[in-house]
Amino acid sequence: MAAGKLYVVGTPIGNRGDLSPRARETFAAADAVLCEDTRVTGKLLAYAGVRKPLVRCDENVIAQRAQGLVERMRAGEVFAFASDAGMPGVSDPGQVLVDAARAADVAVEVIPGPTACITALVSSGIACDHFFFEGFLPRKAPARARRLAELAPVPGALLLYESPHRVGDTLDALAEAYPAREVALCRELTKLHEEVLRAPAPELARTVRERGELKGEMVVVVAPPDEEELARRCAPWAQAEGGEGDAGTDPDAALAAAIRRALAEGEAASSAAKRLSQRFSRKRRDVYALILAMAEEAEAGAGQA
């Protein structure tokens, strides 16, 4: 059997000039390019002077297509995977494909490229000796507040991704959860209108509300807690949600209780899977499957009541 391969290719986060020569060569050598949005990646390939078949692999279809793509690679095909911007796998559906490829002993090679979270961290000027990448916070206010409470003791900067229509709510939540911390909002990174706004959390929240809706994908950088704040937040992370028992003595029961609470609050399955997989050190896809199963069981029980 011929040996195929999966290349994971980092792409520019805004400025196409950041596309590396190695990334261009990888696209040119691949049999096909897997991507989130064929229109976005098609424009990038046109800029690079590369013409290749494009296969859509966004979060809606990648789980269903992963096994078939892996079989094609095992038969000898070479694929390059690119997200819409930045490094695939970082808050991105590419993680599913990489996991499937490695599980099937298909060679995986990463072609490094820009990433928005690290670019924002450096641009913010906030201390970056230690940092924690969170990605997107939960959409629902109760789940978002609970997650911020869990993240409060992290002794490093917090990196969050956010969209323009939700950033106001996120900054308000940060102002309530971390009123004494500096927060930086970084948007349009590497583009013509790149901007970094930095201020204490409540002040930044007011500034953004007054300016109205801002455009562009955004990264929020939250300064680490100082010693005084850490002293106030001495409870173990596992107790942050409360009422779920000791995760250390029965992690399966604690995970199930956390899922029931998330379902009761209407948190999206994908958001809950991401949050709880991090908290309980489980694979996200396994937690996601458990959430779906418990949701189905709850619906069946409600129907019989």
Score class of each variant (00 low, 15 high):
Ser270Asn: 13
Glu176Gln: 10
Pro12Arg: 04
Pro21Asp: 15
Pro153Arg: 00
Ala223Tyr: 03
Thr11Gly: 04
Leu137Trp: 03
Gly89Asn: 01
Leu197Asp: 11
Lys140His: 02
Glu299Phe: 08
Glu210Arg: 12
Asp92Lys: 03
Pro153Gly: 03
Phe27Gly: 06
Thr38Glu: 02
Arg211Lys: 15
Asp250Asn: 12
Asp250Lys: 03
Gly89Trp: 00
Gly125His: 06
Ser124Ala: 09
Lys140Tyr: 01
Lys52Asn: 09
Val154Gly: 04
Glu229Gln: 04
Pro224Arg: 00
Leu204Tyr: 05
Ala201His: 03
Cys186His: 07
Pro200Val: 14
Ser20Asn: 07
Asn60Asp: 15
His130Trp: 02
Asp286Gly: 13
Gly245Lys: 00
Met73Val: 10
Ala273Asn: 05
Ile126Val: 09
Ala80Gln: 05
His130Ser: 11
Glu71Ser: 15
Thr41Cys: 02
Leu197Ser: 13
Ser83Ile: 02
Pro93Cys: 00
Cys186Tyr: 09
Asn15Tyr: 13
Tyr178Ala: 11
Ser123Arg: 15
Glu195Ser: 14
Ala305Asp: 13
Gly135Tyr: 00
Leu137Met: 03
Glu213Gly: 13
Leu292Ile: 12
His193Val: 09
Lys274Trp: 10
Val78Cys: 06
Gly113Glu: 14
Gly10Ala: 09
Val108Gly: 03
Ala173Asn: 04
Leu230Ile: 03
Gly212Thr: 11
Ala240Pro: 06
Glu25Tyr: 07
Gly113Ile: 15
Cys234Ser: 12
Leu158Asp: 01
Gly49Arg: 04
Val78Ser: 03
Pro88Met: 07
Ala100Thr: 09
Val183Asp: 07
Pro112Lys: 09
Cys35Trp: 00
Glu182Asn: 10
Gly89Leu: 01
Leu159Cys: 12
Glu77Met: 07
Val154Asp: 08
Ala247Thr: 11
Ala231Phe: 00
Ala66Arg: 06
Glu182Asp: 14
Gly248Ala: 14
Glu217Met: 02
Ser163Glu: 02
Ala300Gln: 15
Gly10Gln: 10
Lys274Tyr: 09
Leu290Ser: 09
Pro202Ile: 13
Leu158Tyr: 00
Val40Asp: 07
Val219Lys: 07
Gln278Ile: 05
Asp84Met: 05
Glu296Ala: 12
Ser20Gly: 08
Arg275Ser: 08
